[in-house]
Design a protein around this nucleic acid. Structure first.
Length: 741
DNA sequence: AGCACGCCGACT
DNA sequence: GTCGGCGTGCTC
């Protein structure tokens, strides 16, 4: 008799372990590691994944009911990677596995949402009947009447009215609610024709980098390179020729690109060189298309996977190279569980395969450069742009002096003058707005009242097109009030320098110019993002105004001026990465110009131009920036010198949240007593103190040894579980958080 | 998670 | 007494 170990598809602590089953004879042929199966589990049937095939078993077993996938969804190597992730990021193995296997795959992705089974009126009657006998059920129905079209699944609904899933099941049994399968839709991706490209002759610097990389590829050691190359220095050509080398060894390659830069232009560069051998994996593919690409990789038809974060799990069997472009980008860190960082996973996966990793960027993350300094990574530099084009000249404008000189506009005199000059010679301009950390909000000018979301601790964002106020954290939307809800005054005003405001101001000064705007507001519609960029690239737009999304990877040879309206908004955030982000952003934005034959110019407006992150960005001097920033990190004991674990405690009850956070704090502190190399910050109210009606408190663990921190964290949480009455409170762990905001 | 089991207050 | 809600524990 053959047996298997199964991980069941339930992200719950109690079943975060393997369960043994036996294989009925007729399924023996189709069984295998990584197959999805249906198994009996208590009184019901659930999905699970085979993680081991074995001959003996120490339990009385039930049989597997059926095999639910044609393919093995992961092999031994990817299973090992999942186990590493589960341990490193402290998540359930099933969560790590589900991050690895193709998402949206075989079947259309659906969620089971709860609906009322009768009209609101009838429901209201039922509520009054139930209220006494079954207050919880009445509360659930009441919630559904009050919040139609919220499309909640059982668990979330139960949480909303503070009850268990059992209550909802009882309502279903009574026929008062029913379940609807709701499709999670995806936007299809259109393929284009790709022009064939041939390898370019490398510059001397590229030559050096390539020879080192090729040597590493041939040595079969898991070397990690940090390829630090200024914008426009030809990093992509290095990637392409490295991939060629790997292919000639009969091995495969993965290329990660930030989602936002995964445009047809970027894909064309890889498809143009390697044609059909390239599989593209990103979130905008339909589930069918994505699964097709996944199968091409699995079957060995594609040798190169190009994609966003999750492409790091491409199912290759002989991986030789992983490239991470723009390695400093924070989008490589997954926001929800498992909160993995693709860069860390890549280095681990390379190790499992004796593969080479190339981390490419103009502005390395402090983490990567720190490791390069310690020679954990090998540093390769491309300091010159192709054809020796100069880096753009950067001018800093002190906005305080502008104001003193009587200019109250948001455009400095010098930026206005330069824009005018470009328009006269038909060159293009990009105006960049660093909006991270604040958005347009609505405030009463009389009493200062700010419109906020009831469920979340944030001010509502103003969308002028639709004349509404919206919460960025939940789906709450509302109309702009005529009067202040607090004092009744009608002096309600919209604040914040939005892209829209900049656009309008520019249009006023330059009525003749064609101005387009790109931000979340204008790119929500399908394909809008592409449309704006291609029209800009075709020269139909003179000035493009936008947020972070225009800072990434495109080549516009006719752009000769980039203006940054406010360089320092991110600097004022209470986050230890504030300077790093500011420097990276300014350097990236500056890189958008001067990429053609014409020289480029950058004007940065700032209220704190003396800050080193801004000064060093002006000089294009990463090295100096790093040296100054690492001193700050050393002093404050922040990453990359230390590791962090962010613990978020959240619950609908503020009282319970605080109690749990404080109890956890006590437990940790007791364990920290005689250690100097680890510390606990908090518990404190989280910077976002309330999201979707849940209160949030935060604890931050800091220390040089991550393994020790992790153990401390685990032991403390275990001890916390003994406090029974506080068990329902949610605790979320973030290992190596990107920010603590 | 989601199912059965068993305790306990309310009501023909 | 019995009906049904709600907390608890278990799933190879």
């Amino acid at each position: 008799m053959k047996y298997v170990s199964i991980i069941v598809d339930l992200p719950v602590k109690q079943v975060n372990q393997t369960f043994s089953y036996h294989i009925p004879e007729k399924l023996e042929e189709t069984i295998g590691l990584g197959k999805k199966v249906i198994v009996p589990f208590g009184p019901r049937k659930i999905e699970g994944y085979i993680v081991e095939i074995k001959k003996q078993v120490e339990f009385e077993t039930k049989p597997i009911i059926k095999v639910a996938s044609d393919y093995s969804l992961f092999d031994q190597e990817l299973l090992e990677l999942a186990e590493w992730m589960a341990n490193y990021y402290q998540c359930y193995l099933i969560s790590a596995l589900k991050a690895i296997i193709p998402s949206g795959k075989q079947r259309v992705k659906t969620k089971r949402v709860v609906n009322l089974a009768q009209s609101d009126q009838e429901t209201n009657e039922i509520i009054s009947q139930l209220e006494k006998r079954a207050p919880k059920q009445a509360a659930v129905l009441f919630y559904l009447v009050k919040n139609p079209a919220q499309q909640l699944i059982t668990t979330n609904l139960a949480k909303k009215v503070n009850t268990s899933s059992g209550t909802i099941r009882r309502l279903f049994k009574k026929g008062l609610i029913d379940y609807n399968k709701e499709e999670v839709k995806r936007i299809p991706y259109q393929d284009t024709n790709f022009k064939k490209t041939t390898p370019l002759a490398p510059t001397p610097e590229q030559e050096v980098a390539l020879s080192e990389i090729k040597a590493a590829i041939n040595s079969q050691l898991d070397t990690t390179f940090l390829l630090k190359g200024v914008t426009g220095s030809g990093k992509t050509e290095v990637y392409l020729q490295s991939i060629s080398e790997v292919l000639s060894q009969g091995q495969e390659a993965i290329v990660l690109i930030p989602e936002i830069a995964l445009t047809p232009q970027t894909i064309a560069r890889f498809k143009g060189r390697f044609g059909k051998q390239v599989a593209v994996l990103h979130s905008q593919l339909s589930s069918g298309e994505r699964f097709d690409e996944w199968r091409r990789i699995k079957e060995g038809k594609a040798k190169i996977a190009v994609g966003a974060r999750s492409a790091i799990f491409a199912p290759f069997s002989n991986l030789g190279l992983i490239v991470i472009d723009e390695e400093h980008e924070t989008t490589y860190k997954q926001e929800d569980h498992p909160k993995y960082h693709a860069r860390e996973v890549a280095v681990k996966r390379a190790k499992l395969n004796q593969a080479v990793t190339i981390l490419g960027t103009a502005t390395p993350s402090l983490e990567s450069y720190y490791r390069a300094q310690k020679e954990e990574y090998k540093l390769l530099e491309l300091s010159k742009r192709i054809e020796d084009r100069p880096l753009p000249k950067v001018e800093l404008v002190d906005m305080r002096q502008e104001l003193e000189a009587g200019n109250k506009q948001m455009l400095s005199r010098s930026l206005e003058k330069e824009i005018k000059a470009r328009l006269e010679v038909d060159e293009q301009v990009i105006i960049f707005l660093n909006r991270r950390g604040f958005s347009t909000f609505v405030q009463c000018r009389k009493c200062g009242y700010v419109m906020e979301c009831d469920e979340c601790d944030v001010s509502l964002t103003y969308f002028s097109q639709s004349q509404i106020l919206k919460c960025n954290y939940c789906d709450f939307t509302t109309k702009i009030p005529e009067e202040c809800p607090d004092c009744g005054s009608s002096y309600i005003k919209y604040f914040g320098v939005g892209t829209e405001k900049v656009e309008r101001a520019l249009q006023e000064i330059f009525p003749e110019a064609n101005i387009a705007r790109m931000d979340r507001d204008t790119t929500t519609k399908k394909g809008a993002y592409q449309r704006i960029l291609s029209s800009f690239s075709a020269g139909e737009i003179d000035i493009l105004v936008g947020t972070q999304m225009i800072a990434k990877g495109h080549d516009y040879p006719n752009v000769t001026l980039v203006g940054v309206i406010t360089a320092d908004t991110a600097l004022n955030l209470p986050d230890f990465r504030a300077s790093e982000r500011t420097f990276q952003l300014l350097a990236q934005v500056a890189g958008r110009t001067g990429r053609g034959a014409k020289a480029g110019q950058v004007i940065i407006q700032s209220y704190t131009p003396e800050h080193y992150s801004i000064q060093q960005a002006k000089e294009h001097d990463y090295q100096s920036f790093y040296e100054q920033e690492i001193i700050f990190r050393e002093e404050m004991e922040y990453p990359p010198v230390t590791h962090l674990i962010n613990i978020i405690v959240s619950d609908k009850s503020e009282d319970k949240t605080i109690k749990v956070a404080q109890r956890l704090g006590e437990i940790i502190n007791a364990k920290l007593k005689d250690t100097a190399d680890k510390q606990l910050l908090g518990p404190v109210q989280a910077p976002l103190s309330k999201i979707r009606g849940e209160y949030r408190w935060q604890l931050l663990l800091k220390g040089r040894n991550l393994e020790e921190l992790r153990q401390l964290n685990q032991m403390s949480l275990q001890e916390l579980e003994e406090v029974k009455e506080l068990k329902s409170v949610k605790i979320s762990i973030d290992i190596d958080p990107i920010g603590v905001l």
